[in-house]
C-alpha cells in the first residue's frame, strides 16, 4: 500500500511539473495587403486588466521601431494610421509571470486586424513582460520583411 501511495504521488508531481514546462509559441501574421512601414503613427489602447504597464512597454518598443506612438487616452487621436490592442494572460507558479501576450495592430476605422503577434511561454521558459513585448513586436516587423 505504501508503494502505491508513493507511486501515485510521484505521478502527481510528474504531471504537475511537466504540464507547465514545455509549451513555447511565438507567431506573427500580417494581412497580405498591409504595408507596416506605411503606418507612421500608432495609438496603443490600454488593456483593461493590464498588470505590468504593458501599454508603456509596447509604446516604447514601437517608438524604437521608428513609429510615432500615443498611448494614454482610450480614444485614439484623429488621424492615426493604426490602433494597437493587446491581451495579456498571467499565470502563477511560485511567482506570477506573463504566460501569453497577443498584440494586434488594427485599422482605426474598421477595427480590422492588420497584423497580429502572439507569444506563449510557460513557467520554465518564462520571459519578463519587456522580453515578451520585444519578442511579439519584433516578430510582427520581421514578418513584414519576409
Amino acid at each position: 500500500m505504501n508503494k502505491l501511495v508513493k507511486l501515485l504521488l510521484l505521478l502527481c508531481i510528474t504531471a504537475a511539473i511537466t504540464s507547465g514546462c514545455a509549451v513555447n509559441r511565438a507567431t506573427a501574421h500580417i494581412d497580405p495587403a498591409t504595408n507596416l512601414s506605411a503606418l507612421k503613427t500608432l495609438h496603443v489602447r490600454k488593456f483593461a486588466d493590464d498588470n505590468a504597464n504593458t501599454e508603456t512597454l509596447i509604446a516604447d518598443r514601437l517608438r524604437a521601431q521608428g513609429v510615432k506612438v500615443t498611448a494614454d487616452p482610450q480614444t485614439p487621436p484623429a488621424g492615426v494610421d493604426g490602433v494597437v490592442t493587446y491581451v495579456e494572460k498571467w499565470m502563477w507558479d511560485i511567482t506570477m509571470y506573463m504566460l501569453e501576450l497577443t498584440v494586434v495592430i488594427r485599422d482605426p476605422q474598421s477595427d480590422f486586424p492588420l497584423a497580429t503577434g502572439n507569444s506563449y511561454h510557460t513557467s520554465l521558459t518564462r520571459k519578463s513582460p519587456k522580453e515578451m513585448v520585444d519578442e511579439v513586436i519584433g516578430n510582427i516587423y520581421k514578418e513584414q520583411n519576409k
Binding site: 501515485l8 504521488l9 505521478l11 502527481c12 504531471a15 504537475a16 511537466t18 504540464s19
Partner: peptide
C-alpha cells in the same frame, strides 16, 4: 489527486 492531475495534464 493523481487522477485529477493526469486528467488535466495530458
Amino acid at each position: 489527486a493523481a487522477a485529477l492531475a493526469l486528467l488535466l495534464a495530458g
